[in-house]
Design a protein around this nucleic acid. Structure first.
Length: 490
RNA sequence: GGCCCGUUCGUCUAGUGGCUAGGACACAUGGUUCUCAUCCAUGAAGCAGGAGUUCAAUUCUCCUACGGGCUGCCA
């Protein structure tokens, strides 16, 4: 059993965009497969025709690829156990349902949805345990024949043992046991001919030789059903490992109300895939390290099922943002530029005519200052803007003061007089120092007004580098403008 | 209602039958001869509660509380 090759799968339903919870499940499967030298499979569970969404399919594939969780077998790429889309495997499920019918492990149920709904309502009123009342479990052969002759629609239900208990060992939680009397005669095949999750999942996991099932812990209560199904088929069940849930900040379900929930939204906000993967990996799993920025190679090396937590983990955006910033700072400049440029272009900050050297200069300074790529437009706009937007607070506090105008004009002359070949940080600093010595002013008193005048804000990268990146002509123009405004101001 | 799972700083977590219960985010303070950011240092902050087992429990058992899941011809 331990000699069997490790084969795991991520098996999403295409009913919506891939959420971070699903991504984390995919990630753990991927990590486990890669750690063991096993196979990672992507299977599409699209048996719910009512909730099917074709766009979700594209999103799942694109999001997984963006995260770098490439699968070895499955959807879009095929493999020896295909097809990997359940709606293309209906004949297989039908055949297996028939097999259980023949062996007496299943039976046809002719109850109408209306009757079941009414029964459920009644049970709720009574306060009795909800569940199928097994009306069709022991139908006489005559009654069955009559239903069949009438062409009555039916579903196929599993004949659950009525006594005893079903026990299985979860790799993360240990032994878990359910009384069988608690279990329903659940549906295997719906009246539209499609299988339910339970049937399709077990048949596929077996046929695809899945060795370990890592899935969300909302599946724990279904696992005894699955164990009974394996037994009915006479198959060896895989190892089960139920992953803790990801909770919203403050607890509760993660949804759009708490910010982004879908992977594609994180992408659009300017998170790096490596950062999101690192963050998600640490939700429910920990590495032995005092540093939480863990390269993927190290995660692969150290990932084990035993290291996975039992407790649900809250999604902390603050920590993700910090981590994303850390990953951005780690990037070589060229790569950072490649990643961030689309954000600057889309926001209209870069129009394509900028000097590449100037852009590089600006981005080098801003790389340590942004947490998300989408922070970059607001952070960089003043370097490239034709007309500056001034922060009113900063203007009031820093510029509208006694003597500031004269200093601004003096510095403007000073900067205008710098030979173009010497408009660099070292020369600018030296020139300004000279001026300070002459005027007997502390550096602060000149730097702050200068910053507000040329950037419009009270915070920016180092002033000399900033002046250089803005460019001599623009600096002079902005200083002239600012001084002019102060002249006309009261 | 029934069944099942869970509970270490605000958050993510490490950890052991005996330790000053460790790290990270966030927070606070200080430093990095211009702001902001980065970076560095320091600080505050935790074993849900109650019984038991034991020389000794955060660690083992039980109960309670709280949180979560399932209870569909959804997955």
């Amino acid at each position: 059993m331990t000699a069997d090759p490790v084969r795991v799968r991520f098996a999403p339903s295409p009913t919506g965009m891939l959420h971070v919870g699903g991504a984390r499940t995919a990630l753990f499967n991927w990590l486990f497969a890669r750690h063991c030298g096993g196979t990672f499979i992507l299977r599409i569970e699209d048996t719910d025709r009512a909730r099917y969404d074709a766009r979700a399919l594209d999103d799942i594939s694109a999001s997984l690829r963006w995260l770098g969780l490439q699968w070895d077998e499955g959807y879009e790429i095929g493999g020896p156990c295909g097809p990997y889309v359940q709606s293309e495997r209906t004949a297989i499920y039908l055949q297996h349902a028939q097999q259980l019918l023949d062996s007496g492990h299943a039976y046809k149920c002719y109850c109408t949805p209306d009757r079941l709904a009414a029964a459920r309502e009644q049970q709720q009123r009574d306060g009795s345990a909800p569940g199928y009342d097994r009306a069709c479990r022991d139908l006489s052969p005559d009654a069955r024949a009559a239903h069949n002759a009438a062409g009555a629609p039916f579903v196929i239900r599993f004949r659950m043992p009525l006594t005893g208990a079903t026990t299985f060992v979860d790799a993360i939680r240990g032994a878990i046991s359910y009384p069988n009397a608690q279990q329903d005669d659940f549906v295997l095949l719906k009246s539209d001919g499609f299988p339910t999750y339970h049937l399709a999942n077990i048949v596929d996991d077996h046929l695809m030789r899945i060795s370990h099932v890592l899935r969300g812990d909302e599946w724990i209560p279904s696992t005894p059903k699955h164990v009974q199904l394996y037994a009915a088929f006479g198959w060896q069940p895989p190892v089960f490992a139920h992953l803790p849930v990801i909770l919203a900040p403050g607890g509760g379900k993660l949804s759009k109300r708490h910010g982004a929930a879908a992977v594609c939204e994180y992408r659009a906000l300017g998170y790096l895939p490596d950062a999101l993967v690192n963050f998600l990996a640490l939700l429910g799993w920990a590495v032995a390290a005092d540093n939480e920025i863990v390269p993927r190679a190290q995660m692969l090396k150290e990932f084990t099922l035993e290291g996975i937590n039992k407790t649900g983990a809250q999604f902390d955006h603050e920590k993700l943002n910090w981590m994303n910033g850390a990953y951005i700072r780690q990037l070589p400049l060229a790569e950072f530029m490649r990643e961030v440029t689309p954000f600057l272009t889309n926001a209209g900050v870069l129009k394509g005519a900028e000097d590449p050297a100037q852009v590089a200069q600006v981005l080098q300074m801003e790389q340590a200052r942004v947490h998300l790529l989408s922070d970059a437009p607001a952070a960089c706009a003043f370097f490239f803007a034709d007309t500056l937007e001034y922060d009113r607070q900063a203007v009031k506090k820093v510029l509208q003061r006694e003597g500031v105008r004269d200093h601004l004009l003096a510095v403007c002359d000073l900067l205008a007089g710098v030979p173009p070949g010497q408009f660099d940080a070292a020369h600018l600093e030296a020139r300004l120092q000279e001026y300070l010595t002459r005027s007997g002013r502390p550096l602060k008193n000149v730097v702050h007004p200068l910053r507000v005048a040329v950037t419009g804000r009270s915070a920016s990268p180092g002033i000399f580098e900033t002046l250089v990146a803005i460019g001599q002509a623009r600096v002079v123009q902005r200083l002239t403008h600012a001084a002019g405004q102060l002249c006309s101001a009261p």
